[in-house]
Amino acid sequence: MRYFCLAFGLMLWTTSAATALDIEEQRLFPGTGDRVLRVLSTTDLDLFAPYILSFQEVRPEISVDYTVVSSSDLHREIRDGAQFDLAISSAMDLQFQLANDGFAQPYRSDAIQNLPDWARWRDLIFAITAEPAVVVINTDRFSGLDLPATRQDLIALLRDNPDHFAGAVGTYDVRSSGLGYLFATQDDRATDAYWRLNEVMGRLEPQLYCCSGQMIDDVGSGRLALAYNVLGSYAADRLAADEGGRMQILQMQDFTNVMLRTVLIPTPAQNTEAAGAMIDVLTTLGMRDLPGEWPLPSLSLAGPLESSGLGPIRLGPALMVYLDPLNRRTFLTEWENAIEQQ
């Protein structure tokens, strides 16, 4: 009896842990059959819905249960063995760690073979988009100012106009955003200008965000003059919908981080056949040559970048370096010191 109680208690605890998952959005795309493909993703529903509909054109019998969570939640869920058939995340480092640590199933198909080498790793993890980190500005608030082309320009601009930009600069809170942390660490690796930029931004009481979407909204509304390290794909999507034309995307000329949105099949997945079919659809769409009507950019855009040495962030074990707790602690301490100067 006592064991039963214990078991029951454990069940309650696990259920409550499961419900503790902070779901941002969820929708069921019903199919004609019984099978349900459970997808856990960090991609906003409105951006990803066309892809699901495209998949259901090929496989109408499969229902798709699409759940949007943060990248760190997704990482934790998959690590804890949650029952999902597919995990799609923009945090490549966390995705990579899942694959490296054995939380992903291998998948092989002809569509996968067409992916360039840098867009897959060990038949475990596959890139479906290549998305740059960009600076988004509000053109109203930039009237009379030169548009920065490099990080040096940006540092000079912020330093020279502290009153203009005070409280009007936004960036990721790298402590809570997996993608923000990835962009920040890659910036750190690429240039020392990043830390000077952080110092300058820190003096301007920067606004910290969990997600690209809110940052872009605030730039659009004029609350922010500038947002640094925003996901270009989201910005482009909002820009297209923005009627005022007050937003502009700036791509830094010194270098641009290109993130790969990746997909993997978690080990406990049941519906692996459907998951594989979905990967085929996503990678095939990802390899398309023309931008087309799709909300997320194609992998082929990263091809020319790769040859120029400004390729996408490399899918490899080096991604795990910044995930090391000691490294993370050191990095966050430095970051806090720079950004939070009250």
Binding site: A318, L319, M320, V321, L326
Partner: peptide, 8 residues
């Protein structure tokens, strides 16, 4: 400090 190169 785990160096990037060690895993790269």
């Amino acid at each position: 400090e785990l160096p990037y190169a060690a895993f790269a």
